[in-house]
């Protein structure tokens, strides 16, 4: 770790001021990603702004009937929250499939959105990496790329965004509320994370002086028909190779609305509205699900070690949709 100074803030405006004053400062919440990256010398902040004592640690109803998840609520407290379990079980499932109980007790909702890729070259400061040091090249494209992206890649970077929670938030169309020196704004979940393009060093559209204050869930929770399917190298405590969040609104055997988000395949949770629209009005049959999987993965491109993800993702999409459709409606 490099030498850094530390400051503790108690309100949002002080946090924003600290960040605006010093572009080499970083917020620290649970610390489970940032401290790891600092130990590896990948992140080298000159100042840590500890935001843990800002009162953003509540889960409350919003006026439109949705739920507001404070940025500093832990992943555990979110997953086991009674309202989240009842109304947004897809989110609970996704969170609980990630990391370990200890890490979820530390990790915060804001930090989960901001976690960085697990690309091994990004972590290894002895290798070139455009995300870590722009312009040095991407070691993964011609290297070992089993965990890497197959959709939305660029010639600069093929990293994946590793969060499980965010795959569910993408399907639920959450809103990320942020505050910066220019005030507050709401970022639709689909616009929060970026594709790598020519600037893979930038993961999200959050500005350096902005802090996430909450993640708002719209009223619709798809509690009756949802599934989070995570495929990984071991059964627990491993990042996804491919994951699928499926949320359906059913009318008998007919699909009224479908949402699908994929993890482990791209630089952001992956959605394809055209493909989702194909399911509208369709019945629950393997053929209909397969057709959607083909559309979603149509432009996928493998890099050798990760090419298996294309077929894996198709099968995972079909299976997740099947699980979601067949769930017993809750009484």
């Amino acid at each position: 770790m490099n030498s850094f100074s530390y400051v503790r803030v108690r309100d949002v405006s002080s946090a924003v001021n600290e960040a605006a004053m010093d572009t080499a400062a970083k917020f620290i919440a649970g610390g489970t990603n940032l401290i790891d990256l600092m130990k590896e010398d990948v992140a080298r902040p000159d100042r840590l702004v500890d935001i843990n004592r800002i009162p953003l640690n509540r889960i409350e109803q919003t006026s439109d009937g949705g739920l507001r998840l404070g940025a500093l609520v832990t992943n555990s407290d979110t997953a086991y929250n009674e309202q989240v379990e009842k109304r947004y079980p897809l989110l609970s499932r996704a969170i609980l499939s990630g990391a370990s109980a200890q890490l979820r007790n530390m990790a915060t909702n804001g930090g989960n959105l901001m976690q960085r890729t697990r690309c091994y070259y990004f972590y290894d400061t002895a290798t070139p990496c455009n995300k870590r040091e722009p312009g040095t090249g991407c070691s993964a494209i011609d290297g070992f790329n089993r965990m890497h992206a197959v959709l939305g890649t660029s010639e600069q970077c093929i990293a994946v965004f590793p969060s499980d929670m965010c795959v569910a938030l993408a399907a639920l169309e959450a809103i990320v509320r942020v505050t910066g020196k220019n005030g507050d704004r709401n970022i639709p979940f689909a616009d929060f994370h970026r594709l790598p393009g020519d600037t893979p060093q930038i993961d999200t559209n959050l500005q350096p002086d902005e802090i996430i204050t909450s993640i708002d869930l719209p009223p619709k929770g798809f509690a009756d028909h949802h599934a989070y399917l995570k495929v990984r190298d071991r059964h627990s405590y491993a990042f996804a190779l491919v994951s699928v969040a499926a949320a359906l609104e059913m009318d008998g055997n007919k699909i009224k609305e479908a949402r699908l988000a994929l993890g482990g395949v791209a630089h952001k949770p992956w959605r394809n509205r055209e493909a989702e629209a194909l399911l509208k009005g369709r019945t629950v049959t393997p053929d209909n699900f397969q057709a959607v999987a083909e559309v979603i993965m149509h432009d996928a491109k493998g890099f050798g070690d990760n090419t298996f993800k294309i077929d894996l993702a198709k099968r995972a999409i079909v299976r997740a949709l099947k699980h979601a459709a067949q769930m017993e409606a809750r009484s």
Partner: peptide, 21 residues
Amino acid sequence: MKRPIEFESARRVTPSPQRTQ
């Protein structure tokens, strides 16, 4: 939406911070 700004800025030397109680 505003244009994204780069996150990691150049390394800066900071004076060794005080220990805190």
